[in-house]
Nucleic acid binder design. Structure first.
Lengths: 140, 140
DNA sequence: TAACTGTCTGCAACAAAGTTGCAAAATATA
DNA sequence: TATATTTTGCAACTTTGTTGCAGACAGTTA
C-alpha cells in the first residue's frame, strides 16, 4: 500500500489500521469525491457501516478530508490539500458537480471570489458548488 | 389567514387546503429559512410527516419555495421571489447561515459573482452558502 | 347546495441513513 | 512481549425519508 497513507495517518496521530488504510487509499486513487455509500459498497471491500461513519468523521476532524455540500443533500468527501490541519480547513476552492455523470470534483485551480455581505455581518466560510456539465460529458 | 396565501396557491393550480395554508403561512411570517423539522415540530401545530414532505416537495416544484443546501447536510427551505415559476428557479442570490443563532437567510440584495470553470465545462447553477456571524449576534 | 370528480391527507408499513454502548480485537508504546 | 490505549464490529436503536392506499376534502358543474 502507498507509503503516503501511513505518513498521513501518523502525522495526524492516528493509529494505522486496515480500514483506515483502505478508505484513505480510495481517496488517493480516485480524483473524484466520494459519498458514504460509495465507500461502503465499494466492490471487493466490505466495511462495517459504523466504521465508515467513524473513519470519515475522524478524517474530517483531522483535516484529512473535507465535505462538499450538494443540492440533493448528500454529503460527499474529498481529500484536503496538505495545508489543512486539525480543525482548520483552508479549502478556498470551489466544487463542481456534473449533472450527467455525477462526478464531483474540487476545482483547486480557482479561488473563491469575495462575496459582499450586509454591514456588521462577518463571513467565516464560503461554500460554492457549481452544477453543470463537465468537459467529458459535453463531448459525448 | 393572509389573503396572499390563497392567491399563491391558486396561481400555482394548487387546491387550497388547511395544511398548505398553514405551512405557507409559516414561511410568510418567518423571514428565516425553515427546515423540515422546524415545520413538523412547530408549536401549536401537528402536521403529518408525510404531508409535510409532500407539501414542501410540491412547493419547490411549483417554484414557491427553493432549497438551501447547508454544510451539515440538512436542507432548508425559503420563499422564492415572485419571478420564479414552475420548474424554473431564478434565485441568483446567495445564502447566509449564522453559526451563533442558526438563522438562515437569503441575501437577495447581492448577486452571485461569476465563477471561472475549466475549458469545455458548462455551468448550470451556482450555489453559494456563506457561514458566519450575523449583525445581531455580533452586537451581543 | 347536492352530486360528481379529481386531488390531497394521514395511516401503516417499509427502507435508508445515522447513532450509541460495549466487548473483543488490534495497535502503539515501553 | 506485556500493558495501556485505541479501534472495530455487532446489536439495538433513533431519525429521516418513501410508497401504497382508502377515506376525506376541495373545486366544479348543474
Amino acid at each position: 500500500m502507498d507509503s503516503r497513507i501511513h505518513d498521513i495517518l501518523r502525522r495526524n496521530q492516528l493509529s494505522v489500521t486496515a480500514s483506515r488504510e483502505k478508505i484513505l487509499n480510495l481517496f488517493l486513487t480516485n480524483t473524484r469525491a466520494l459519498a458514504h455509500a460509495d465507500i461502503e459498497h465499494k466492490a471487493g471491500e466490505r466495511f462495517d457501516r459504523v466504521t465508515v461513519y467513524r473513519t470519515l468523521q475522524t478524517f474530517v476532524e483531522k483535516g484529512i478530508l473535507h465535505t462538499i455540500p450538494t443540492a440533493d443533500n448528500s454529503v460527499k468527501y474529498a481529500l484536503c490539500k496538505n495545508d489543512c490541519f486539525e480543525g482548520h480547513h483552508h479549502d478556498n476552492h470551489y466544487h463542481f458537480i456534473c449533472s450527467v455523470c455525477g462526478k464531483t470534483e474540487c476545482l483547486e485551480e480557482f479561488i473563491i471570489p469575495s462575496v459582499k455581505l450586509p454591514k456588521e455581518y462577518l463571513a467565516n466560510n464560503v461554500e460554492i458548488v457549481v452544477n453543470g456539465i463537465c468537459g467529458a460529458c459535453r463531448k459525448k
